[in-house]
Amino acid sequence: MLVLKMRSVRRLLLLLALALTDTATLPAQSDSLAPSRLTTRAWLLGVGRVNRLDTYLSPLEYTGPELHVVRETMRPTRWLAGRISTQRLVVAGVAYTHSPTDDGKAWSGQIDGAWGYHYNWRPAPGLRLMAGAQAAGGLGFQYHTRNGNNPAQARADVALSASLLAVYKFRLGRWPMTARVQADAPLLGAMFTPHYGQSYYELFSLGHYDRNVRFTHPGNAPSMRWLATLDVPLGRAVVRVGYLCDIRQSDVNHLKRHAWSHALLVGYVRHFTLIRPADRRRADMIY
């Protein structure tokens, strides 16, 4: 049963990826990623700042430092002669924030995962454009240290997102570099939220539910994640530096939330196949 569901999800994502492409251009794409089947995996650590608002807890915006961990896996599939690639992206963060006057303090944390498929074009030498769809989900919390019966807010959401990438491979002197920018935006989804003045006691102790799962779309939850990275060879390793801009917002049940994160990232990239380690200098290794 589970296998069938997974297949259905894959087919759906594939169809969405195709829907976002100009199918008339397909015959013009002569290159193929299938022969290499290289997997690119990256781990990144990030330091930045976040601005958070949750009117269930306070009308004030809380700001402070935030730490991030980003893990990404990307590889080509065999579909459409290798023009479809798959990506798994996990972005986690934890922050300690304070109110404008520093009287209120808050802890927050979240983990977001996205699993998607992209159609690949190579419009120019070294340039790869990718468009596709993701199944995304997130869990998180925000805890205010001095609130009474509304001390914390939970976050849980799922969404179908549009995803665009531009990857450009170039040389700086004798150094092969890869620059990349990715934009992901949820288009349709659902999120958990208490109602305007509803207590968690009613929800979890009494089982009183009141529109606690709401349909989301860009009109009531305009959100987007930008991820820009540069891969630089350093000895035998490939170092990745980047910038993350993660904008999560919602306005449902008369409750407004936002978490605007900006972070600088640094980490490493590994390229490999399931059979043998790949040569990181190979030309088709440009994710």
Binding site: L20, T25, W121, A183, S223, M224, H258
Partner: peptide, 21 residues
């Protein structure tokens, strides 16, 4: 194709309007 992608990215950026109190 490039124009379409640029337009789509721009649209996505515009969707991310700020929610504030």
């Amino acid at each position: 194709l490039v124009s379409s992608l640029t337009a789509l990215l721009t649209a996505l950026v515009c969707l991310t309007s700020c929610i504030t109190e």
